[in-house]
Design a protein around this nucleic acid. Structure first.
Lengths: 342, 342
DNA sequence: TGCTAAATTTTCCGCGCGTAAAAATAATAT
DNA sequence: ATATTATTTTTACGCGCGGAAAATTTAGCA
């Protein structure tokens, strides 16, 4: 950690007493050089703290070690968490992840894909906006860069899809709610991605399977301020007496949080105790759901499984190339998290 | 959008009928070339969709157009929001922001600074961990790269600091609480950054100024899972009857959210209506605070002002260099947001 | 039309490193 | 010790672009 600054690999090679190509080889894969030379390099590395110029390296490598991570909205703690765990795994695998948030806008998503293209990444993990995405542009991108879709599916795009099996998770919740009380109605907003549609379908299916009449309540609203949509819509629904059941299954946790705020505002007690008149359940196990009042009963997605699965899948594509066959889809199960709201 | 692929600027220059150096000039500043040639380039740009190689550009430019943005914990919506608005402003100013999250760990923060150094950014906007930060390393970094500290101060480091004036905001809240009910006690966790210390001091000062006896309750806990710390600590405080006042001012919103969950758990009604026995206030106007039950009375930080201010300050440093005088500190005022929890 | 200033073209070098091929050296086996 | 194989060194080229200097063209103006 001492000595003067090293300007480039040439100088560093001189200091370590090894030739530059060998040093270059070392940085590409430390195990590819003999142990004795590795030690000499690492010794110099401690004395001089040299790092190869990022841009020169990436310009010359056939394929960079960059991984792009794109989430639709990073201010949503769910995606922040997904991004965080995925980042970690990429670093552990020796790659350099760069995370981008589309901030809920198609323009940003397209812009990000173009930026990513110019980064020539080895691969990309893309949680797309979903319905709002520019299918053509995403498709073109996927043809050039190995891309794994995460969370939100766009039918047929990308080399693989990793997500949650809504047709497993939603029935799990519906059955629980029916078993423990009044069959739920389904509270949703205009779908931003395919998950929302699948959840509605899954709700309807499982209600019918159980011999109940499904009832879907859709409220207006757009953008990614889901809590606000749930709150505003919730107030309207409550005030108009549109609620057909005293159990409400919300399309996702953030919507449920907004709905709970609306119920509170109207003096309606939510929960499973005797003094409560409304049960509310969500979906996703949003990080804040533990701390709502009452705590939110929901379906948890396995962050670890999703991030590990998606990164491993991508690594395979990077190493072995993208197989030409049909897209590989991996759907994980959700788990019921029973708390006190339903 | 048609035609074959362009391999480099040379080829693109040929297609547009302009020389390569002129094209290069255009990409550095479109207004620096004559209008007629600009049009020729932009016409070709539409036909061929060419972008200069990112790595070659950055390798050769004296200074890159990159801006580093570092937040301590991006899964905290407060910082996600700060990062988002700052990103936007950087892009609008013609720079390429890269956002990193330290995820609450010093090791990550140091790692990020090293990564940033190798990116040779034009400047960095750093919201440091605070107390946990490696002062030496941050200091060394700030000497090499124009750095503006945001939100959390590290005394004397960086070229400027942009944040909130806790000695304005906290008294605002204390005075409001005293005016409308019982003087508050102060609920805090082990301080993660200087703001926490300043808020405690400001609370004590303003209580004494108003002739009340300050009372600080500190609960244990570490890490960035503030809600959990507030919840766990809140339960303990409530169960042990440690609360000296029926008004609680929490050091930040996330802590308040946890505390509210604890109060709910113990059947204590929170709010300002007659049937309530506890008032809880927070600080920061966390995006989620509107939707707590009851909605959280808090102090709002002006995201726009902070992000605009910090980016503009940094741009000045990038253009004119960092002045040698004392560090410039800008403190914005917080605003009282009255909701229904206090 | 001629003049001047501005813009562009030509030509060239360099950035720091990946990578390839041939030559030299070191480690291992026989 | 000699043959064999694994590593390293030497040498050299190229990546795509920024930037400088000189030569040339163009635009603006009297």
């Amino acid at each position: 950690m001492s000595g003067q600054k090293i300007r480039n690999m040439e100088e560093f090679a001189a200091k370590s007493g090894v030739s530059r190509p060998t040093v270059s080889k070392y940085f590409n894969d430390p195990t590819s050089v003999r142990k004795s030379t590795r030690l000499r390099i690492e010794e110099a590395l401690e004395r001089y703290n040299f790092r190869p110029n990022l841009y020169a390296v990436n310009q010359n490598r056939r394929l960079t070690k960059n991984i792009g991570i794109v989430v639709p909205y990073v201010a949503d703690p769910f995606f922040a968490e997904i991004a965080r765990t995925i980042e970690r795994r990429c670093i552990d695998a020796g790659f350099s992840p760069s995370t981008f948030s589309s901030h809920g806008s198609v323009e940003h998503e397209v812009e990000i894909l173009e930026t990513l293209r110019s980064m020539r990444p080895a691969g990309v993990l893309l949680a797309p906006l979903g319905r709002a995405s520019d299918r053509k542009k995403v498709e073109a991108f996927c043809e050039d860069v190995p891309t794994v879709l995460v969370d939100s599916n766009i039918e047929g795009l990308g080399a693989a899809f990793i997500g949650l099996d809504n047709f497993q998770s939603v029935p799990l919740m519906v059955e629980y709610l029916c078993r423990t009380g009044e069959p739920p109605c389904f509270f949703e907003m205009p779908p931003v991605n395919p998950n929302a549609n699948k959840r509605r379908s899954a709700y309807i299916q499982s209600m019918e399977r159980l011999g109940h009449t499904p009832h879907v309540i859709r409220v207006e609203g757009q953008g990614w301020d889901f809590e606000d949509i749930g709150y505003t819509g919730g107030l309207r629904v409550l005030d108009n007496g549109e609620l057909s059941s005293r159990t409400v299954l919300c399309s996702n946790d953030r919507l449920a949080i907004g709905f709970m705020a609306a119920a509170y505002e109207r003096g309606i007690r939510v929960g499973i105790t005797k003094d409560c008149t409304l049960r509310i359940a969500g979906h996703d196990d949003h990080p804040f759901s533990r701390f709502t009042c009452p705590s939110l009963t929901t379906i948890s997605q396995d962050y670890e499984a999703i991030s590990t699965g998606s990164v491993e899948t991508l690594m395979n594509f990077i190493e072995d190339g993208v197989p030409s066959g049909p897209r590989r889809d991996t759907l994980f199960d959700g788990h019921l998290v029973m708390r006190s709201s339903a």
